[in-house]
Amino acid sequence: MKILINLLKEAQDKKGYLSEKVMKGLSEKYDIPLSRLYGVATFYMHLKITPQGKNIIEVCGSPSCILNNGNTVEKSFEEELKIEAGETTKDKQFTLYKVSCIGCCDEAPAALINGKAYTKLTSEKVKKIIKELRSKESSKTKPRKKK
């Protein structure tokens, strides 16, 4: 059974966001008005119609995380990345969001990074995670040594 929200998510999985080209393609393929597709996509937090950073960081801002230094963790991400929640770094590697409860209240404070849960975060852990993500990216783009 074709479920629209699943189709949109699958399309987004491939390119990181729902570009105009992708939306027009979906509209044609499934005979759904473009206006309807945008109407649905703009409703949901996880569906993006603008380009995103390579790594998406979603820091939980709900009460259980706030009660466990969640605000400090959010500030740590902002300091490490030199952006505020809702922004993307200039090198387009990271986009940071502050989000509602992600269901990790027993391991607060927590964040989702590229859809994976990172829990019991501290400022030190945040620095380590960002460092690892950055070095992962730079090892991908490192030029091969000539023989």
């Binding site: 059974m1 479920i3 629209l4 929200i5 699943n6 949109l8 998510k9 759904i32 309807r36 109407g39 649905v40 409703f43 949901y44 937090m45 996880h46 569906l47 989000v99 509602s100 409860c101």
Partner: peptide, 29 residues
């Protein structure tokens, strides 16, 4: 048949009519 519908970050979709709207391909209102 059992299919998984992939929610997309809307708390309101926990409400029974909103969840049905979402499954049917509408905004989860």
């Amino acid at each position: 048949k059992i299919d998984v519908v992939r929610g997309a970050g809307a708390y309101v979709c926990g409400e029974e009519t909103a969840i049905l709207q979402s499954i049917q391909g509408f905004r989860g209102q």
